[in-house]
Design a protein around this nucleic acid. Structure first.
Lengths: 214, 214
DNA sequence: TACGTTATTGACCATATGGTCAAAAACCTG
DNA sequence: CAGGTTTTTGACCATATGGTCAATAACGTA
């Protein structure tokens, strides 16, 4: 019997994502959001709770979507796992050099999170881990395939690819063009062709400052 | 005969940098700046011109400092160029996992720049190129040394390292710990040992990491 | 068709923002 | 010590911010 909503939450979150991707959390005004989503402040407010909460929703959706996309890119069976990673990275090079002003919400969150224990930081970390997990899965397949040495450090390589893609995204923002970004991607991929994967377990620390932990 | 200033510009810019590094450009309030620098709004204003301009100054100083630091790290003669890059990257892994909330102003600028032709974007691009230039110089030495194949793409490798370090910085913000980040750095470095460099690979860079610890 | 529930609307608010102004203060030179 | 120049100070301002309220509009059901 309650009056039904005029909007679909997913649409609103999607529009909000766009705003956040372009402006960032801090710089996006509630008014931007209102304009982009089409609903009034109050509707936004009692559907989501506020700017921050809306960002969290957007982040969560963005994360899901990104994971799905990468997962799909890495999951097709028509190519070897390593080829899939290669294709994915090259596609990222193109996407990131496309010149639009969007920045993935995960990256936004990474930079704008306070670092404290707030939900934003938590969600951000989770996002990174989830993303790394997708890479790890694919790399694991590659290892099982024999495309990677048995002692390859799938975990750190996965994180490595997350780092590389984030870096590429930033460079794209700096105006680095498609050609260079593609070359960077190819450089990055060369890690997978190295014969000795001796660095397996994330050991060794720099020579001069041998660290205690790890 | 004019009344002299009570402050040194470099001190002010330095304090401001700290604020910007922690909060970012958009989120840092003029009041934060006033408090951090110790001078009044108006003094800030007629010495620099406003928040944005102050950020640009801070960015420029930060860029100079970063370039100098990397350049120094990569420029010492007591190790081969490749070893220097290795040491530098491992040091970055430690720095970025130190858990503070600072983000380099270059990265901040990268994310917060509008992408348009404003001075911020311009300075940002210049910063990236400058940084890449430092890597390129070192890599070029490595090539001359025979540590890299003659046909190695020094340019793209340089940009690659910029990307990797930016990515590592972001991951550090996400709470990725020192061990993992170090492993990522080592993964990243493996690019320099890629198969095509196999023939030319001298013994300057220890390929097997003799790290005995966990 | 009336009711209860919820969504929507648009006005409203306290605050904090970046930025400005005019007066007072400080310094160096002459 | 006076004059000129610039800095400093603290009050001031218009605006935009995130957020809230009370009233109204829709809807499904009974």
């Amino acid at each position: 019997m309650p009056r039904p909503r005029k909007f679909r939450e997913s649409d609103v979150v999607s529009s909000a994502s766009e705003v956040f991707a372009v402006h960032g959390l801090a710089a996006a005004t509630l008014d931007d959001l209102v304009r982009a989503t089409g609903l009034g402040k109050q509707s936004l407010y009692n559907a989501f709770g506020g700017k921050r909460e809306l960002f969290l929703r957007a982040l969560s959706e963005d994360r899901e979507e990104a994971t799905r996309a990468v997962s799909e890119a890495l999951g097709h069976d028509d190519a070897s796992p390593l080829e899939r990673i290669r294709g994915h990275l090259l596609r990222m090079a193109i996407e990131f050099s496309s010149g639009d002003r969007r920045v993935s919400l995960t990256t936004r969150a990474l930079v704008e999170s306070t670092g404290a224990e707030d939900p934003l930081s938590t969600a951000t970390k989770a996002g990174i881990e989830q993303l790394a997990g997708v890479y790890a899965q694919c790399l694991e397949h590659a290892r099982e395939n024999g495309d990677l040495p048995a002692d390859a450090s799938v975990q750190s390589l996965a994180v490595y690819f997350v780092a590389v893609t984030r870096g590429m995204e930033l460079l794209g923002r700096a105006g680095v063009g498609r050609g260079v970004l593609t070359a960077v991607a190819l450089d990055a991929l060369r890690v997978l062709h190295g014969q000795r994967m001796e660095a397996a377990n994330g050991n060794h620390v720099p020579t001069e400052s041998a660290g205690p932990d790890s």
